[in-house]
Lab assay of single mutants.
Amino acid sequence: MIINNLKLIREKKKISQSELAALLEVSRQTINGIEKNKYNPSLQLALKIAYYLNTPLEDIFQWQ
Rank of each mutant, 00 (worst) to 15 (best):
A46H: 02
R28N: 15
Q17H: 04
N54V: 06
K12L: 13
L6I: 04
N37S: 09
A50R: 03
S16C: 05
E11P: 02
I34V: 06
F61H: 01
L23A: 15
L53A: 02
L20T: 00
R28I: 15
I60N: 00
S27Y: 03
I34N: 00
E58I: 09
L6V: 05
R28G: 10
Y51E: 10
W63V: 05
Q29V: 14
D59T: 08
E11W: 06
S42R: 07
K14P: 04
Q17E: 06
L57F: 06
F61E: 01
K7Q: 14
R10V: 03
E19C: 07
E35I: 02
L24Q: 00
L53F: 08
Q17T: 11
P41A: 04
S27P: 13
N37W: 14
Y51H: 09
K12P: 02
Q17V: 14
L43Q: 12
L23F: 15
R10E: 01
K12T: 13
P41S: 03
P41E: 01
Y39T: 10
A21M: 03
E35D: 02
L57D: 02
Q44K: 11
S16A: 08
S16Y: 04
Q62D: 05
Y52L: 11
K12S: 12
F61Y: 03
S42V: 04
K14I: 05
E35P: 01
M1N: 05
M1L: 15
I3W: 07
N5Y: 05
W63L: 06
L6G: 00
Q17A: 09
F61C: 02
N54Y: 06
Q64I: 07
K38A: 14
Y51K: 11
A50F: 01
K36A: 15
R10N: 01
S27T: 09
D59M: 10
S18I: 15
Q64P: 13
E58P: 11
L57T: 04
Y39S: 07
L23R: 10
I15H: 04
I2L: 10
I60A: 02
K36T: 15
N4P: 03
L6P: 00
L20S: 01
E19T: 12
I60Q: 00
P41Y: 02
K13A: 14
K13L: 11
Y51M: 12
S16P: 07
S42I: 04
T55I: 06
M1V: 09
Y52W: 12
I2A: 11
A46F: 02
K36G: 14
N4A: 03
S27K: 09
W63P: 05
E35F: 01
L47R: 14
E35G: 00
L43G: 07
L24V: 14
N4S: 04
S18Y: 14
I34W: 06
L8P: 11
R28S: 14
Y39C: 11
L23M: 15
S42F: 03
N40K: 12
L20C: 03
K14Q: 12
Q17D: 05
N40E: 11
I3N: 06
N5D: 04
Q29L: 13
E19Y: 07
E58T: 09
